[in-house]
């Protein structure tokens, strides 16, 4: 049996922010490893630090202490632009509030990361993804002309266009009604399975978390315990 390849690794990570009367520690001594192709949920109540942890693992921010590796890349030592380069090549994002650029069409929003990475067939990839998320007729619509569910589907297509090695999703269905949320989650796990992407998902929704292979439970900036479930059926 092959040893699983470690894709993401955090060692003794802490994060503090400056506040008016000193500093506030949001994360305390966090260590984790996520293997390639694995799906992991970080679960916790609002303010438990799960989004902060996601930002560190994705290289959006750097820790105050500790080390974070994405593949072989030590994110904690890299500059903002070096991390941007790694994100462009390896990382996809799905955000709670979709975060589409209002002045670009659905297709243009999807192709944006590919164009930034210099991918030549960005448009055909984009159209293909639009088809996969069921919005091929909405290619030229602007975000304001789309419903919340449609916007999140565009965001998911955008996340997969560069065929990222790892996908970070921050409460992907929190802003949607239950039925739409369910469809979005299905789509996310479907594409993830098809592309073999490592998935790191932040949520306070236990049902959604249960669909991941493993869960990290967070409270007040610390892991409560590590639940290593068997591989869920994501089909």
């Amino acid at each position: 049996m092959n040893t699983p390849e470690v894709h993401i690794k955090a060692v003794n990570v802490a994060k503090s922010v400056k506040v008016t009367d000193g500093s506030l520690t949001i994360l305390h001594d966090i260590s984790l490893t996520i293997n390639r192709g694995e799906s992991v949920a970080i679960v916790g109540a609002s303010g438990s630090g799960k989004s902060t942890l996601l930002s560190l693992l994705a290289g959006l921010d750097t820790p105050t202490q500790g080390e974070v590796f994405l593949g072989q890349q030590p994110l904690h030592r890299l500059s903002e632009d070096e991390r941007a380069g790694i994100r462009a090549a390896n990382v996809g994002f799905v955000f709670q509030s979709f975060l589409l650029l209002p002045s670009l069409t659905a297709l243009e929003n999807i192709t944006l990361p590919a164009e930034l990475a210099g991918v030549k067939d960005a448009r055909s990839r984009g159209l293909d993804l639009l088809l996969q998320v069921g919005l091929s007729e909405r290619a030229d619509f602007f975000p304001a002309q789309l419903s919340g569910g449609e916007q999140q589907r565009v965001a998911i297509a955008r996340a997969f266009i560069t065929q990222p090695a790892v996908l970070f999703a921050d409460e992907p269905s929190a802003n949607l009604d239950a039925a739409t949320g369910q469809k979005i989650e299905d789509l996310l796990f479907k594409l993830n399975a098809e592309q073999g992407t490592t998935l790191v998902l932040v949520t306070h929704n236990n049902d959604l978390a249960d669909r991941c292979q493993r869960q990290y439970q967070m409270q007040a900036g610390r892991f409560l315990d590590i639940n290593t479930q068997g591989i869920a059926d994501v089909g």
């Binding site: 994705a58 959006l60 903002e80 632009d81 941007a84 380069g85 994100r87 462009a88 090549a89 990382v91 994002f93 975060l99 650029l101 209002p102 002045s103 944006l112 990361p113 930034l116 990475a117 955008r158 560069t162």
Partner: peptide, 16 residues
């Protein structure tokens, strides 16, 4: 600001 943060999160460098 938000749009730039999004584009940067998607991998754009400051120079871009």
């Amino acid at each position: 600001t938000k749009a730039v943060a999004v584009i940067k999160a998607l991998g754009a460098t400051t120079a871009q």
